[in-house]
Amino acid sequence: MNWLKPNRATGLGSLPHQDELMALKIIAKTMPHWPHWPQLPGKMPEQGFVVQYVQPLIKLGVLTVTPPKDPVFARLDSGWADTVVEFYEQYMAFMNGDAGAEQMFALDGAAFAGLEVFTAHFSQYFPHAEGVKGHISGPLTVGLQIKDERGRACFYEETLRDILVKCLAVQAVLEARRLKTLGLPVLIFIDDPSLFLIGASTHITLTKEAASAALAEIIELLHQEGAKVGVHACAGIDWSILFELPVDVISFDAYHYFTGMALQAKGLAGYLEQGGKLAWGLIPTSGEAWQETPESILTRFDEQSAELAKRGLNPAVLRQSIIWTPSCGTGALPVDLAAHIYSLVAGVVARLDSR
Score class of each variant (00 low, 15 high):
S286Q: 01
G13P: 12
A269G: 12
G61L: 01
D148N: 04
Y271P: 07
T181Y: 01
H223A: 06
S123W: 13
T30E: 01
E158I: 12
F118N: 05
Y255H: 05
S296T: 00
Q274D: 11
H232V: 05
E209Y: 06
E225K: 01
K208D: 06
G270N: 13
P246M: 04
A9T: 06
E149M: 03
N96S: 15
K25V: 07
D192W: 09
P41C: 00
I146G: 02
A169Q: 14
D162K: 06
Q55D: 14
L298R: 05
Q124L: 07
A289D: 03
H128P: 00
F49M: 15
D98P: 15
A23Y: 07
L4R: 06
H135T: 10
F189C: 11
V50M: 03
S137K: 07
E20C: 07
I250R: 07
L221D: 15
N314M: 14
E157L: 14
I204M: 15
L12H: 07
F118P: 12
L272R: 14
K228A: 12
A339Y: 09
Q52A: 07
V65M: 08
Q18L: 11
Q304D: 12
F112I: 15
A9C: 09
A339G: 02
Q39P: 09
A110E: 10
T285C: 04
L24K: 09
K69I: 04
D336L: 10
M92E: 14
S212I: 02
G114E: 08
G134S: 00
L278Y: 04
R8T: 00
D302S: 09
V132D: 06
M31A: 00
F49H: 08
T30V: 00
A129L: 07
E292G: 07
F94M: 13
L195E: 05
R177H: 07
A214I: 00
L115P: 09
S327T: 02
A28W: 12
E130F: 02
G109C: 04
I198T: 08
V348M: 06
G131I: 00
P185A: 12
V231F: 10
G226S: 04
V117S: 06
F243H: 05
Y257E: 03
G331K: 13
V132Y: 15
Q39E: 11
V249D: 12
L187R: 13
Q124R: 15
H128V: 02
L206G: 09
L352Q: 07
L24S: 13
A235Y: 05
E175K: 12
F122G: 10
K180A: 15
K180E: 11
G230H: 09
A210I: 08
K147V: 04
D19I: 00
V165K: 03
C154R: 09
K310Q: 14
N96D: 14
S354W: 03
L195S: 08
G183S: 08
G11M: 02
L337F: 01
V50C: 08
H128Y: 13
P38I: 04
T259C: 01
T66L: 13
S194P: 04
V50R: 02
N2M: 10
L272V: 10
V85Q: 14
